[in-house]
């Protein structure tokens, strides 16, 4: 069985946002729509303070709250574990937006262009792939994955902080990393069983 998963190594991530932009280019998401976002937060007080980076995408939960919540069945979990929104089915109720514990789906209120009375050729082309009023989120780059490519954000991450693979294969790189480097998921108490794992920002051996 295949269950696609991503591992994001917080010890490697430098918060550069290349992933956010690469995702934007790959999916031509309209103005305002970012499927990948890098949260930044600080802890501690000066001079023992610290800055942290937290890239956030859809967790492709095995028990997706969004899917359960969606009244239209626009959200489905595929056999390979990828949770997708079908924007032909979505009625834009934004219930999934509320339901997701990771704030992953967002409603594309309108096809926002970057320039008020000018649509760049890139946007014109990209807009065909989006529907105003519907919910959107990271789809694990499934059209790339289906063609044997890695997701755009994984390929582009300048720090090689992101890994993609099959969680059901204990020998895969992602499984190995999770095991060896104490991978964890965010808010496990939500019981959504995310397929996106994080590796600790400070390694145990240091």
């Amino acid at each position: 069985m295949t269950r696609y998963a991503m591992v994001i190594d917080l010890a490697r991530c430098v918060g550069c946002d290349t992933c956010s932009i690469a995702c934007k280019a790959e999916h031509a998401t309209p103005r305002g729509m970012l499927w990948n976002r890098v949260l930044k937060y600080e802890t501690g007080s000066y001079p023992h303070s610290r800055l942290h980076f937290l890239p956030m995408i859809c967790m492709h939960c095995a028990e997706p709250e969004c899917e359960k919540a969606c009244p239209t069945r626009a959200i489905t979990k595929r056999v390979d574990g990828i949770v997708v929104v079908d924007n032909n089915r979505c009625m834009g109720c934004r219930y999934c937006v509320l339901a997701c514990p990771y704030a992953s789906p967002r409603n594309l209120d309108k096809l926002g262009s970057y320039y008020e009375d000018y649509l760049t050729p890139f946007e014109k082309m990209g807009f065909a792939r989006h529907k105003a009023g519907t919910a959107e989120k990271c789809d694990f780059c499934l059209e790339r994955v289906e063609r044997g490519m890695e997701p755009a954000c994984v390929v582009s991450c300048v720090a090689k902080a992101r890994f993609f693979g099959n969680l059901d294969d204990p020998g895969s790189e992602v499984s190995r990393l999770i095991k060896e480097k104490a991978g964890f998921v965010l808010n496990p108490e939500m019981n959504t069983e995310p397929s996106v794992y994080y590796l600790p920002s400070v390694r145990g051996d240091r």
Binding site: P71, T72, R73, A74, N87, R89, C90, M91, G92, C93, R94, N107, L108, D109, K131, A132, G133, T134, A135
Partner: peptide
């Protein structure tokens, strides 16, 4: 609703 025409799917 963002996509009003799809409201019929609400019963799915």
């Amino acid at each position: 609703l963002g996509a009003k025409t799809k409201v019929i799917r609400a019963f799915c």
